[in-house]
Structures are given as C-alpha cells and as structure tokens.
C-alpha cells in the first residue's frame, strides 16, 4: 500500500506539473508549483517508510518550510508593483523590439 500511495503522489505531481506548464496566468503557475512542493513533502515522508529510513522525515520538515518561504517570497515580490500594469495573460517574458 505504501508503494501504491507513492505512485499516486507521483501521478498528482505530474498533473500539477502539466498545469504549471499549461496554466494561462502567472498565478496558476505559482499555484501548481506550490502544490508540487507540498506533494514533494508527502513523497519524501512516504519514501522514508518505503525504504525503511525514517530519517527522511527531517528532510521533509525542512522542505515544507523552504517551500513555504519560497512561495511567500515570490508573492511578496508581486506586491512591489512589479507585476502590476501587466496583462493578466502571462507575458512575463517580453520580446524587446
């Protein structure tokens, strides 16, 4: 059952990455990356049990905190007028004329 759960988390991560590549707006992508991160935490904990090495849980804890800080960091950056006046469709990579 542990291995089945690991595979299920893998599938959920793949779905998240598809949304991250396809997502029309910037926020869809951040949402997908955030979900990818939380699923990674679950994946690391499950892998610790599958391999019989519960020390992996320390890595999972640290990963949860790093994921939180990175998402909050990106979104604080969005408050600094950098993302404003930009079309809602993602054109963050603009070609210079």
């Amino acid at each position: 059952m542990l291995i089945a759960a690991t595979l299920a988390i893998f599938v959920a991560m793949i779905l998240a990455i598809i949304r991250g590549i396809a997502g029309p707006t910037l926020y869809d992508r951040i949402l997908a990356v955030n979900m990818f991160g939380t699923k990674t935490v679950l994946l690391i904990s499950l892998l610790g049990f599958v391999m019989g090495r519960p020390e992996f849980l320390d890595i999972a804890l640290v990963y949860a905190l790093i994921n939180f800080i990175s998402v909050i960091g990106v979104l604080r950056y969005s408050d600094t007028n950098q993302f404003k006046h930009m079309p809602t469709e993602d054109k963050s990579i603009r070609k210079e004329p």
Partner: peptide, 22 residues
C-alpha cells in the same frame, strides 16, 4: 506545518491575484 502553511499560501496567492487584476 502543512495545516498552517496551506491556508496561508492560498490566502496570499488569492490576495496577490485579486489585487493584480485576475
């Protein structure tokens, strides 16, 4: 941590998207 972090990121994400015109 998951239960504390989940709502915080959702709220911040929704707020940022809302204030930037989505």
């Amino acid at each position: 941590f998951t239960l504390l972090i989940g709502p915080t990121t959702s709220h911040v994400l929704a707020k940022a998207a809302f204030h930037n015109g989505v």
